[in-house]
C-alpha cells in the first residue's frame, strides 16, 4: 500500500467519525503480492457508527476511475469506530469477493490501527501490510 493511500484512508476514517467511513482500493494483484495505489472514498449509505454500505454510485465511479488508470478494484476499507481492526461477523457474512482485500481501520484507540484480511468461505486470514 502506498503511503498516500494509507494516509488518505486513515484521514477519511477520522473525518467520518463518529460514523463508519468506507471506500475502495484500486491497484494491481499479481497473485503473490497486491499493491494498492489508489484510494477511492465512498459515502456510507447506511450513515451509521455500527455498519456501512458503500454508496453504489461511488462504487461505480471508483470502478471507472480504476479502469481508466489501468487498475482494478482489489479491496474495500472501512472504519470500526469502537472496536478492533478485525472483521465483524457482518463483515465476514457479507464479504463479496474472496479475491479482495478487506482493510479495517480501528479508531478505538488514540492511534488508528490498520489491518488487512482475506475472507474466504467465512474464514478470516490476516495478511501483513507494507506501507511504502
Amino acid at each position: 500500500m502506498t503511503r498516500a493511500v494509507h494516509a488518505e484512508m486513515v484521514a477519511a476514517c477520522l473525518a467520518g467519525y463518529p460514523l463508519e467511513a468506507c471506500g475502495l482500493l484500486g491497484g494491481v494483484d499479481d497473485g503473490a503480492v497486491s499493491r494498492a495505489t489508489a484510494c477511492y472514498q465512498a459515502a456510507n449509505a447506511a450513515a451509521s457508527s455500527r455498519v456501512y454500505t458503500v454508496e453504489p454510485r461511488d462504487m461505480l465511479r471508483a470502478d471507472r476511475a480504476a479502469e481508466d488508470s489501468g487498475l482494478s478494484l482489489i479491496g474495500v476499507w472501512h472504519s470500526h469506530t469502537h472496536t478492533d481492526a478485525y472483521p465483524s461477523p457482518t463483515d465476514v457474512g457479507q464479504a463479496p469477493d474472496p479475491e479482495w482485500w478487506y482493510v479495517l481501520v480501528s479508531l478505538r484507540d488514540v492511534e488508528p490501527v490498520v489491518r488487512a484480511y482475506r475472507i474466504r468461505d467465512g474464514a478470516v486470514e490476516e495478511r501483513p501490510i507494507a506501507v511504502q
Binding site: C22, A46, V54, P56, L60, Q94, P96
Partner: peptide, 10 residues
C-alpha cells in the same frame, strides 16, 4: 449495463 457487487458490513 454495469453489474457491481453490493458492498456492506459492520
Amino acid at each position: 449495463i454495469t453489474l457491481m457487487p453490493a458492498v456492506a458490513g459492520g
